[in-house]
């Protein structure tokens, strides 16, 4: 195990491929390949991608009920090399439904909130997390937090990993994310801007807003920053500067599923291989572009990523 992924709010992802999807209409799926159930939640997605990239990984998180057990079984069936270390709580793990329409080029997502996690479970998880830290070099904390988890908990997870000398990668959005950034900024930061373009009370409108945000993350202590910008671009930053990565190819919107996770997995792959942060960011971008070639998630290879290392323009902005 070299990498631990933490998914506090995993989900069983149900991806439905429906051509010409319309609300208020009856749709029939064309076959079993149009309905795919996979383990999900950002950290778990990253773990699956890292496994494909042959990085030994341990997937940690909080599961619940029957859905949680299905998720764990599926994860084991699809990725038997991934080590699992989940803690269970009462209730049911959430299900996330994604309707992909390849004709209209749309993605419709319905995500539920997840089970309420009690303090006892959080205590049990923390003990296992601390134990696992001794076995890994990098920790990825990614995704939303379930009800019952306060912002201090994430902050504690990041803080313990940093004190243990681990590289910490974090993706998220909301109060818990902002508080963690302000207090114990992880080494690599990626805000999840899918649902909101507001962060630290500021709205992101112009490219300058994104560049300023990237610099703020660096000021808080980040070593590398990625901020998704207008689908085909990403604002990336290290202590050496701020760049705009822009894909040379048009990206189909229906192929965007999982690209954020692929970006994170690419960065972690780069860090694991000993690359500097800028080159690790390039691997992230290449992985994200490679992922857009697939409708389904977690279908990458090292050669595919490396083939896409020049598939984007790099423009220094600051």
């Amino acid at each position: 195990m070299r990498v631990a992924t933490v998914t506090l709010n995993p989900a069983l992802d149900r991806q439905l491929i429906v051509s010409n999807f319309e609300v208020n209409q009856l749709h029939r799926l064309s076959g079993p390949e149009s309905s795919i159930i996979t383990p999900g939640g950002k950290g778990i997605n990253v773990a699956m991608l890292l496994d494909v990239l042959e990085i030994p990984v341990v997937a940690m998180g909080i599961l619940a009920g029957y859905t949680g057990r299905i998720l764990e079984e599926e994860l084991r069936r699809l990725h038997p090399r991934i080590t699992t270390n989940f803690v269970y709580t009462s209730g049911e793990t959430r299900e996330n439904i994604t309707i992909v329409d390849p004709i209209k080029d749309t993605i419709t997502e319905i995500n539920s909130s997840g089970p309420e996690v009690d303090e006892k479970t959080l205590g049990i998880f923390l003990k296992r997390y601390i134990m696992t830290l001794s076995r890994v070099n990098t920790v990825v904390i990614s995704g939303s937090v379930p009800p019952g988890v306060d912002s201090g908990y994430c902050l504690d997870l990041v803080s313990r990993a940093k004190h243990a000398g681990k590289t910490v990668v974090m993706e998220g959005i909301g109060r818990f994310f902002e508080e963690t950034i302000r207090n114990v900024c992880p080494h690599v930061v990626r805000p999840d801007l899918r649902r909101t373009q507001t962060i630290f009370g500021r709205s992101l409108d112009t490219l300058d807003d994104y560049i300023k945000l990237a610099r703020d993350f660096l000021d808080f202590g980040a070593e590398a920053v990625v901020i998704s910008y207008h689908i085909v671009s990403d604002v990336v930053a290290t202590k050496e500067g701020v760049w705009l990565f822009t894909s040379r190819e048009k990206v189909e919107k229906s192929h965007l599923l999982g690209t954020g996770d692929a970006f994170v997995a690419g960065i972690v792959y780069g860090i694991d291989k000993g690359l500097n942060y800028f080159d690790a960011l390039r691997y992230g971008m290449a992985a994200a572009i490679a992922e857009t070639k697939h409708v389904e998630k977690s279908a990458l290879s090292i050669s595919e990523i490396e083939k896409h290392l020049d598939a984007f323009e790099v423009e220094k902005k600051a």
Binding site: V58, A64, R69, R76, P80, R81, I82, T83, T84, N85, F86, V87, Y88, T89, S90, K120, I124, K127, R128, T132
Partner: peptide, 24 residues
């Protein structure tokens, strides 16, 4: 099966039973 679910020596029997029942 690469699962490292485990208990610590100082955890309670109640915790152990809870974990086993939830994870089958």
């Amino acid at each position: 099966i690469r699962d490292i679910s485990a208990v610590f020596e100082d955890e309670t029997i109640e915790n152990f039973v809870r974990m086993c029942s939830m994870q089958s």
